[in-house]
């Protein structure tokens, strides 16, 4: 299954969850938020939310700014 994580194509096993997509990028779970196709997925739902082919996953955190 092909999904886009932070603008880059990733190959994940069919039925992979949001949690697996996050782990593809970082081990950090605090201070991180996820949107799938522009919908925020609460941290508590990462393990139970499966991804679908061609989903756009954005994994964001706070950086210096403003």
């Amino acid at each position: 299954m092909r999904v886009t994580i932070n603008g880059t194509d990733h190959e994940l096993p069919a039925g992979a969850t949001v949690a697996q997509a996050v782990r593809a990028l970082t081990e950090r779970t605090t201070g991180v938020a996820v949107a799938v196709n522009d919908e925020v997925i609460a941290r508590g739902a990462w393990d139970s939310t499966p991804l679908s082919e061609a989903d756009r996953v954005e994994v964001l955190t706070a950086v210096q700014g403003g």
Partner: peptide, 28 residues
Amino acid sequence: TVAMRRVDPKARGSVLDVLNRLGIKVLP
């Protein structure tokens, strides 16, 4: 204030750690 950006797997340290250490309220 802090900005929200894509997680950078190569980033070392986090501005959040600094703010937590100093007990400063975060305004995204």
